[in-house]
Design a protein around this nucleic acid. Structure first.
Length: 427
RNA sequence: GUGGGCGUAGCUCAGGUGGUUAGAGCGUCAGGUUGUGGCCCUGAAGGCCGGGGGUUCAAGUCCCCUCGCUCACCCCA
């Protein structure tokens, strides 16, 4: 018999891992919901043209796309990221401005898998379309920062840069290319290859032999237009105003071609430097137009879920919820009593589990213990005959009691209310 | 895509230079307690040793191929 396992770079999330993933989402929703963002759920599959606009020169588009021709002859692809999809949806539906949206879901890139780099990976993110206000940049960055902080992460750096306007970026790229080609003999082999494809990305190199040449390279700020410089100054002032710490890095060049002006990255000191980016984003004022829409400015970020959870593990924060039920029903009369009682309690709003298969009381009690339940409700021959249940308290010293069957739901409610600490009231 | 390391029970791992029925801890199940979990004790189930081929009287162990994971590079979240 052949067995199957997950495809390379894809994995199952069970039990606690799935619960943690859900809690991660919910922490994100708390932050973006508080800022007036609405959810968008674009399809996972799009016409490949949607993603080509990310940049034909990028690896993400040129080498890593999961694309195929469907039965109708359409050339489609699984999304490698979601910004392009959101912009396509924006053009298709034209929501009112500014359009502030958040998303959470899987993306696909055909790469060699590694820890913190899956072929199917989840991202959460936000996009703001329709305003070029620098304080929109600040809001977006602050949301990312506050979200990571809310998870308990402490060892995170916000790295900031501005690529200027498209013309600035083009001139800068040219000047950098010129400089690097003048020193091509001193560059590392990898950087020489990168130079051919995208000179700016050489600035990202962390190899020691490249450092002196990079240090002597032209600096981006010399190429900023007055407008771009002013925009970036406002972004930095805004971050200072709300106490989000940042660090300038003129070498920050993100992987996708559509960025202009503000770019940023959240880096974790808890991860290896090769994969220390938890997420990042920037301004992409031309993308909506590239997708056939009206000239519309945009800014957003995406945060990698798996990688961020690894950082949480290293920092020992965000363990995720414990799970479990409140009540476990033990039935040694054959199971129909547990069926009836657990259904009744569930309909009354309690979380209840029970055993199957008519196992011994000892086995059922073990299961009750493992279920995490506060309370075990036991129905044996005696209880069935006397129309009662035995309530056994699993987490404390309270002795077990016998309750009239008809009062069970009310008694359970009272017992659970007593064992829980009083709810804190929001001020 | 390139190179290194590693694949033994559900999980974490032992298994010098090849040598009968492949082990431990944890977990699971059952019993010790003929109606009571956690602690303790006893027992059981559970592996074609990632897959295929080769060398050998004999392969978990050596060789080749392959798949997967992992690390580095590349790239990126």
């Amino acid at each position: 018999m052949t067995t199957f396992r997950t495809s390379p770079g894809m994995r199952d999330l069970l039990g606690d891992d799935a619960a943690r993933r859900r809690a991660f989402d919910s922490a994100f929703v708390t932050v973006v919901g508080a800022a007036g963002y609405e959810q968008i759920v674009p399809p996972i599959l799009e016409d490949i043209g949607v993603f080509s606009r990310i940049g034909e020169a990028t690896d993400v588009v040129s080498k890593e796309m999961y694309d195929f021709v469907d039965r109708g002859g359409r050339h489609v692809a699984l999304r490698p990221e979601q910004t392009a999809s959101v912009c396509r949806a924006f053009v298709e539906h034209r929501p009112s401005l500014p359009y502030k949206a958040w998303y959470s879901g899987p993306n696909f890139r055909y790469e060699k898998p590694q820890r913190g780099r899956q072929r199917q990976f989840d991202q959460v993110g936000v996009e703001v379309l329709g305003t070029d206000d620098p304080y929109a940049d600040v809001e977006v960055i602050a949301i990312g920062w506050d979200f990571l902080t809310s998870l308990g992460l402490a060892d995170v750096d916000l790295v900031l840069n501005s690529l200027g306007d498209p013309e600035d970026r083009r001139r800068f790229s040219e000047a950098v290319g010129e400089h690097l080609r003048a020193h091509v003999g001193e560059l590392s082999e990898q950087s020489r290859e990168t130079l051919e494809r995208n000179p700016l990305r050489v600035l990202d190199s962390k190899r020691a032999e490249d450092a002196p040449i990079i240090a002597g390279a032209p600096r981006i700020e010399e190429f900023w237009s007055p407008e771009a410089a002013e925009h970036f100054a406002a972004v930095r002032d805004g971050l200072d105003r709300i106490g989000v710490p940042w660090r300038l890095d003129g070498g920050l060049v993100r992987g996708l071609d559509y960025y202009r002006r503000t770019t940023f990255e959240f880096r974790s000191g808890a991860l290896d430097s090769a994969q220390n980016a938890l997420g990042g984003g920037g301004r992409y004022d031309g993308l909506v137009e590239d997708l056939g829409g009206p000239a519309t400015p945009g800014i957003g970020f995406a945060i990698g879920v798996e990688r961020t959870l690894i950082a949480c593990d290293v920092e020992s924060v965000f363990p995720g919820p414990a799970g479990g039920v409140e009540v476990f029903v033990v039935d040694t009369t054959g199971g129909s009593e547990a069926l009836a009682l657990s259904t009744e309690l569930r309909r009354a709003g309690r979380s209840v589990d029970r055993g199957f298969g008519g196992r011994s009381m000892k086995a059922q009690m073990k299961a009750a213990d493992r279920s995490g339940a506060e309370l075990a409700l036991i129905i044996g021959e005696d209880e069935a005959a006397s129309d009662t249940v035995t309530a056994r308290f699993l987490r404390g010293v309270r002795p077990q009691e016998q309750w009239p069957r008809a009062e069970t739901a009310a008694r359970v409610a009272a017992a659970l209310a007593e064992s829980k600490p009083p709810e804190m009231t929001e001020s």
